[in-house]
Design a protein around this nucleic acid. Sequence first.
DNA 1: AATGAATGAGGGTTCATTCAT
DNA 2: AATGAATGAACCCTCATTCAT
Lengths: 205, 205, 205, 205
Amino acid sequence: MSTRPPGHAAIVKAAREEFAERGYGATSIRDIAQRAGVSLSALYYYYKGKQELLVAILDDAHDAYFSSCQEALARAGEDPAEQLAAIVESTVRYRSTHPSKSNILLSEERSLQPEHLERYRANHAMATRQFRDIIERGVKEGVFLTPYPDDARRAVMAMCNAVAQWYEPGGVLSEDDLVERYVSLALTIVEYRPRAPRRPVPTSL
Amino acid sequence: MSTRPPGHAAIVKAAREEFAERGYGATSIRDIAQRAGVSLSALYYYYKGKQELLVAILDDAHDAYFSSCQEALARAGEDPAEQLAAIVESTVRYRSTHPSKSNILLSEERSLQPEHLERYRANHAMATRQFRDIIERGVKEGVFLTPYPDDARRAVMAMCNAVAQWYEPGGVLSEDDLVERYVSLALTIVEYRPRAPRRPVPTSL
Amino acid sequence: MSTRPPGHAAIVKAAREEFAERGYGATSIRDIAQRAGVSLSALYYYYKGKQELLVAILDDAHDAYFSSCQEALARAGEDPAEQLAAIVESTVRYRSTHPSKSNILLSEERSLQPEHLERYRANHAMATRQFRDIIERGVKEGVFLTPYPDDARRAVMAMCNAVAQWYEPGGVLSEDDLVERYVSLALTIVEYRPRAPRRPVPTSL
Amino acid sequence: MSTRPPGHAAIVKAAREEFAERGYGATSIRDIAQRAGVSLSALYYYYKGKQELLVAILDDAHDAYFSSCQEALARAGEDPAEQLAAIVESTVRYRSTHPSKSNILLSEERSLQPEHLERYRANHAMATRQFRDIIERGVKEGVFLTPYPDDARRAVMAMCNAVAQWYEPGGVLSEDDLVERYVSLALTIVEYRPRAPRRPVPTSL
DNA sequence: AATGAATGAGGGTTCATTCAT
DNA sequence: AATGAATGAACCCTCATTCAT
């Protein structure tokens, strides 16, 4: 997953960009080869076909996402608010930094052949579970007051996912500011109320 | 838009479903004809080609969405919270009732040929403006306290849009309940605080 | 099977010749289209693919062969020698008149996909049975003296089949003479001895 | 032809089996390399290409056949019946023991490039001549009574050749029995009648 | 002696579309 | 009003082969 033969990187990158721009079904394997600057045959030397490219991209995208999440969650403590902040930050950073990976991840499940669906769905379910578990624990501990934990979870995820569709890295909004806002919004959505031993410092990150 | 020849309806319906399931690029015009139960020639008799079908579908989807919004906004008064509730309700009902239209609307801009982009983008911008105007007015009037009106707007829209991807009409959650929750979540996101002289029952639809 | 759309005939004819000359595996579908004088797409309009062409050719070849056999056997009486003569004549005429059909029939079983094998093998078995039944009855009735009926049957069939590989219609040997010789050879192979009302013809080995 | 580098044997064997199973045109050089358990490059290190492999296989097959024939003919005396028996035995044993070689020999002339055709045809002609000369001498000497020597020759050859297509080494019929039957059939076909002054034990092998 | 990498040509098939009727 | 026939371009992929190492 980390070190691969030379041709791979350029090919996967090109495929990722094409898939993200046009969609898997509308992308021709020749477009990919041309964008990668390799011959059609070279592409087939490294990958068995278009579908395998998609699978490689999706697997890689999932791997990158989850390792980013794990790292952030490890840094966060036991506090549900801190954990929610961590996962939102990971997700937002991932969506803004890797919009191609994100958009493929979010829209090409339908292009997977049956034999690859299971793994994809397991990964997708795990991504969902990360959010759900945190929110449910926050609700149980009484710090997230939302009456609709599942819909709140969906709202938080949808909001984070959408970042991949509009955020422009070089724009007026820095990535750090973006993260700060989305963490704040997420805590608002779950109706976070700190347990307040002494001073509640409410919505600040 | 209202009264059309008989063949049209079945063809557009078939095209809409195919585009929604596979994506425009991955859908073949033969698949559409077959699904509609008409011959390939019949399809070309009614429509000039695949692109025209997409345009017809997008236009129709936009029309249906906006007329639903206008109706709801007309019923709502001047109160930003009421208006936000109205537009969220319209959007959620549209997404849950017409998932195919919604998903095409939300993902096939890239499949439009240049000459049709302008109208699509105008419509898209109008949809955005509907939300933005309401939220901005709520902020100006001091009933929406969110510090990030634009991000809140994106969150509300993303949340509503996502409904088209997961909601199952016959499932445990009725459409009315769904709407109630999403209106509530939207008001939470914009941090709605009623102006409160006499307590106007805040989260009610 | 008898009357088909216009394009069919030329396409099947071209495919048959190409398959016979180069073999199924070495024949390109473009060669067939070119030989038939139609476009590649026209070919696919009439036939689903290369395999379907092969199946159509094999089915047609079997049909033509069997109807020729049935006709001849119907004309022949109950006498095994007459029947053997009839089937040898049918087979030899078929091989000499339709060498392409014959050679494909005799060599392209391996090119059939599994789903078409059963029918092919049933037909092949029936062709074998025609010879076997006649020879076995001749042996049982005491007019075919061969001690190896099964090997005699194989020899007769192999001899007839080989005609497709060498006989030249316009050559020195007329088709009628060819038939006469092969009938004679077949009767020799099964060691035919007529039942001899009075004198039993001495030439016994 | 006798002692070759190690890689050769496995490669030629694999090529022979593939060619026999699928035909030259339908066999890919990758299939051969894989079956031989060597890399594609290794194959090209030993052989210049697919065509050269076919040529090597055909030459080897011819060599093996002719040396078997020569040996048998050398053991046989001057008697045409004995000689026919010898050549039939050689051919049948070859067809049953080396079905792959046999079937390639009998069906891949068409796959040869022009520059290799001449040698192939010379070999093929020699194989034919072996049978023809013996039969013609038998006819001239009056021991083969067949009125159609050439057709008898074709029948005998076709019968022997077909063995490669149906005989199963481990089956009910031993190779020796097979040979005995085919020699007997061949003598029947040429209508062998021993010259008979002192009874030279006719059909004995 | 042996191989991983790469290629251009061609494989079978499907595409959106047109046209004569 | 409606369709069967036909097309050329493009599709994904595999081919036999070469070459630098």
